[in-house]
Write a protein that binds this DNA or RNA. Structure first.
Lengths: 212, 212
DNA sequence: CTTTGTGAATATTTTCACAGCT
DNA sequence: AGCTGTGAAAATATTCACAAAG
C-alpha cells in the first residue's frame, strides 16, 4: 500500500505543473529540483520528497525530463483526461472565466453556462451555450457535469449552490464573496481576492500581537 | 518577546473574519469556537489557539462577542484602516474586480485603474478613473499606491509586474494565468482557478486516498 | 562533478484533555 | 450546565546530509 499523501503535497503539485509547463514553453528539456525550487520558492528537498510519493521520476545526477514529469503530474492530479464544468453566472466575472484560456490547457472544458437574465441566455459565451438557471438541473444531468464554478451575485450564492448539490454536482468553486454551506460529500473551494489581500496585508508593516 | 505566528494562522484569520461578518449580519451577538469551527471546517481548539497568539479575546464559559472579535481580527490584519489599490487591466476580470463590493467592506479602495486600450481610458469603472498604462508610474507615485491587482492578458503580465515593482508597489495579486517573477521584497500572491480545480480534482476519483 | 532519493533529525502544527471561569 | 485558554501529546511537515547513480 502507498503511504498517505499529505494534503500540502497535493497543493504544491499544481504549482510545479505550472512551473514545468512554462519551462517547456521556453524550450527547457531537463530541470533540477533546485531550479524548480528557485522558480516556485519551494525547498528542493521538499520537491523531491513530494514527487517520490508517486514514483521515481528523476535521473540521479541529471534531473527531471520536463515533458515526462508534466505527464506524470497530470496523471497524478487527474488532469490527463478532460473534465466538463458548469459555470453559473454570466456577468463580468463569469465572462472572464468563460474566456480563460488556461482552463482548456488543463483539460477543463466549460460545457454549460447558466444565468437568470433572459437577455443573456440562448447565445454562446466562449465555447458554451448560456442556459437559463431554471434549466440547470436538467442540463447538468443530461451533460453529466459534476463540477461547477459559482460566479453569481452574493445573494444568489447559497440558493444556486443548493441547486447544484441536488443536481449531483460534487465539486464547487465558490467565486462569490459569501461563504456557502454544502454537505460534507461535496468538495468546496472558496476563492476570494479579499482573503488574499487581507493575508498579505498582515505581512506588510511589522504589526505585532495586540495587547488591549 | 512575541512568539512567532505561524503562517497558517494568518491564512485562517480572513476565513474567521468572513464567517464572523456573516454571523453579525444575521444578528448573532456571541459565538463559540465550536460554532465558528462548524461553519469554517476548522477544529475549534485550533481556532482558540490561533486567536490566543494575539491576545485573549473570549470569555470563559461564554464564547466570543462577534463585533469585538471582528474588530480585533481587523486590527491584527491591518484592515481596520483603509488601503488604496491599483487595478491593472479593465477587461472582464478587471471590471468584475472593480465592481466587487466586498473589497470596499474591508477597507480596500481601488483608486486607479490602468489599461492599454485607449477606448477604455479616460472614463470611470466603478469608483475609479481608468488611466492609460503609460501613465502608471506617475499616477501610482502621485496617489502613493503600493498594492496592485494584476488582471491583464498573460503576455503582458511580466512586463506590467516589472513596471509596478519599479513604481514601488510592494504587494501584487496576480490574477493572470502565468507565474511572474518579482524581487523578494515584493509580496506576490498568485490566484488561479486552474490550481484550485486541479487540487480538488485529485480527491475526486476513487483511485486516490481521501482525506476526511 | 551533479543531482536524485531517502533515513534520520528537526521543526512545526494540530489535537487532546482538562483546569478554571461564567 | 457550557466554554475558553493551555500544557502536553500526537501527528505532520520540512530540512539536513549523504549514499548511490549518471
Amino acid at each position: 500500500m502507498p503511504k498517505k499523501v499529505p494534503e500540502g503535497v497535493i497543493e504544491r503539485l499544481p504549482t510545479y505543473l505550472n512551473c514545468l509547463i512554462q519551462l517547456e514553453q521556453e524550450g527547457v528539456v531537463r530541470v533540477s529540483s533546485k531550479r524548480i525550487g528557485a522558480l516556485t520558492g519551494v525547498n528542493p528537498a521538499e520537491i523531491r520528497r513530494d514527487l517520490v510519493y508517486f514514483g521515481t521520476f528523476g535521473i540521479k545526477g541529471v534531473g527531471y525530463e520536463v515533458k515526462y514529469l508534466i505527464g506524470k503530474i497530470k496523471k497524478i492530479l487527474g488532469s490527463d483526461e478532460p473534465h466538463q464544468i458548469a459555470l453559473v453566472g454570466a456577468g463580468n466575472l463569469g465572462s472572464a472565466i468563460a474566456n480563460y484560456a488556461a482552463l482548456g490547457k488543463h483539460g477543463f472544458q466549460i460545457t454549460a453556462i447558466f444565468d437568470v437574465d433572459p437577455a443573456k441566455t440562448g447565445g454562446k459565451l466562449g465555447q458554451a451555450i448560456v442556459y437559463h438557471v431554471d434549466d440547470m438541473a436538467e442540463v447538468l444531468r443530461r451533460e453529466r457535469i459534476n463540477m461547477a464554478i459559482l460566479a453569481v451575485p452574493p445573494r444568489a450564492a447559497q440558493r444556486v449552490a443548493d441547486q447544484l448539490v441536488s443536481a449531483n454536482v460534487n465539486v464547487i468553486l465558490n467565486y462569490t464573496s459569501v461563504m456557502i454551506r454544502v454537505p460534507p460529500s461535496v468538495r468546496l473551494h472558496h476563492s476570494d481576492p479579499v482573503n488574499d489581500l487581507l493575508y498579505t496585508l498582515y505581512y506588510l508593516s511589522g504589526r505585532h500581537p495586540v495587547t488591549s
